[in-house]
Amino acid sequence: MGLHLWRGERHVLNGLSLRLGAGEALQLLWPNGAGKTSLLRGVAGLLPIESGTVRWKGADTSTDYAAYCSDLAYLGHDLALKGDLTAAENLRYSVGLRRQIDAAAISGALQAVGLTAPHDELVRRLSAGQQRRVALARLALWDAQLWLLDEPAANLDAAGQAQVAEAIAAHLSRGGSALISTHQGLPLPAAFNRLSHSPQEFA
């Protein structure tokens, strides 16, 4: 498809073309400034693409963008968590925009990511790693098919990184796909895992 994306005067993505199948993960291990975040945001529709198309299930995503969005989960640098709400409240208000959700599902998801903080603790009092776990719980609750993850394991300890990898592996085994920007590379099941070290591989 040949994606081109500009940031100001810089041609960040130059004729990039890639394909992601069901149950497949592509990890971008590109160097800093190579355009990992731009690619993820462009695929999500948050950045305008100069030329080329993003297709999802064979259809151009711009024709029915709302339907594409409901299949899409984007986890960026900013976690979109409110410091003055508790973890459960954060999930209720953010997941609730997309789908109906009950309190049991929320507390289940928080337990699944190993968030051990008291349930009435405000998110701003949680550590950076714990906040990441809340965002990870939200990702699971969103129930989307395509995950776009920007540095999902940042700020996480070894156990947390293993948990991220586990969550992604579970997502892949359900037939989901994931496009991941990462520095260290996450240990995912080898059969469905592709690694890319530079954008030139897709030119």
Binding site: A44, G45, L46, A66, A67, C69, S70, L72, Y74, G76, H77, D78, L79, A80, L81, K82, S94, L97, R98
Partner: peptide, 19 residues
């Protein structure tokens, strides 16, 4: 805008103007 909530609004599948 700063904490990324508006991005998630834009990607929620709901009408952005309505939100």
């Amino acid at each position: 805008g700063r904490d990324g909530t508006l991005e998630q609004f834009a990607l929620s599948g709901q009408s952005f103007a309505w939100l």
